[in-house]
Amino acid sequence: MTASPDVTSTDAAGDPLYAALSATWRAIQARHPEVPDVMVTLGSGTLGQRGAVRLGHFAENRWQRGDDGPELHELFIGGEGLRAGPAGILATLLHEAAHGLATTRGLTDTSNRGYYHNKRYKALAEELGLAVDEAGGRGWQDTSLEPGTERAYAEQLARLAEVLPIYRHAEEQPPKRNRSRNRIPAICGCPDPVRAWAARGTLAEERLTCRVCGQPLRPENPEDTETEDDQA
């Protein structure tokens, strides 16, 4: 006699979620064929981070299909960010799809280890239907859905709503170590960036600019920027 499946198990909850995320990505690809295939992964968006939540990331060629098969890009979705609901998840998927589009087209859309989003990224994100706002030293990183985009993906939003709410609890963060509030290391947006030490307030007001790339200097270490959300 076969036992009945445990409908409260992790697999039972996770399978439809993965299916909904994958279906939404395929819908994005249908509208924008240059968005590449990905391996969808879920995990902690707070592990190892201080006071930040990583909503998602796109990482080029992180997976291998068999010993001789093609490489696959990684689409990571932070479990804590699922609390944002269907619209928030779609915004994260489109944010990462813009990075995928940059990879397909051979464009450099970020610097500082993917932390700073440049104007190329802004143009790609807008092409996919996102509103893009500047986030100080993080560049054009803050993205949200345009009203028309939400209407265009109504079917996918409804499917995501069927499998939610489900989300991951954030990791408990260790207390921040005492750090000088004065000068911190800063860099510009050049491929070989200029490095300098500057006061936090000076960097926040973007008063220091590189004469080569024209971009304001920003903290070299993301942990030196007080931020609640981090999408890469």
Rank of each mutant, 00 (worst) to 15 (best):
T2Q: 06
P5G: 01
S9Q: 00
D11S: 12
A12Q: 10
A12E: 08
G14T: 12
P16N: 06
L17A: 02
A19Y: 03
A20D: 00
S22V: 10
S22F: 02
S22L: 03
E34C: 06
P36Y: 12
D37V: 14
V38D: 07
T41S: 14
T46V: 12
G48H: 04
N61Q: 15
R62C: 11
R62P: 09
W63N: 08
R65G: 03
D67V: 14
G69M: 11
P70L: 15
L72R: 11
F76E: 09
E80F: 05
G85A: 05
G88Y: 10
A91W: 00
T92E: 04
H95M: 06
H99S: 11
L101H: 07
T103W: 05
T104L: 01
R105W: 05
L107K: 12
S111C: 14
S111H: 09
N112R: 15
R113S: 14
R120W: 00
Y121V: 08
A125I: 02
E126N: 03
L128E: 03
G129Q: 00
E134N: 13
R138N: 11
R138S: 12
G139N: 09
G139P: 10
T143I: 01
L145E: 06
L145M: 04
R151Y: 05
R151Q: 14
Y153P: 05
A154E: 12
A154Y: 03
L157M: 08
A161Q: 13
E162M: 10
P165G: 04
P165L: 02
I166P: 07
A170W: 11
Q173L: 10
P174T: 07
P174L: 01
R177F: 08
R179M: 08
N182L: 15
R183Q: 12
I184W: 02
I184T: 01
I187N: 07
C188K: 03
C190K: 08
P193K: 02
P193T: 06
P193E: 06
P193Q: 01
P193F: 02
A196M: 15
W197I: 03
A199F: 10
G201Y: 04
G201Q: 06
G214L: 06
L217P: 07
P222S: 00
E228V: 15
D229E: 15
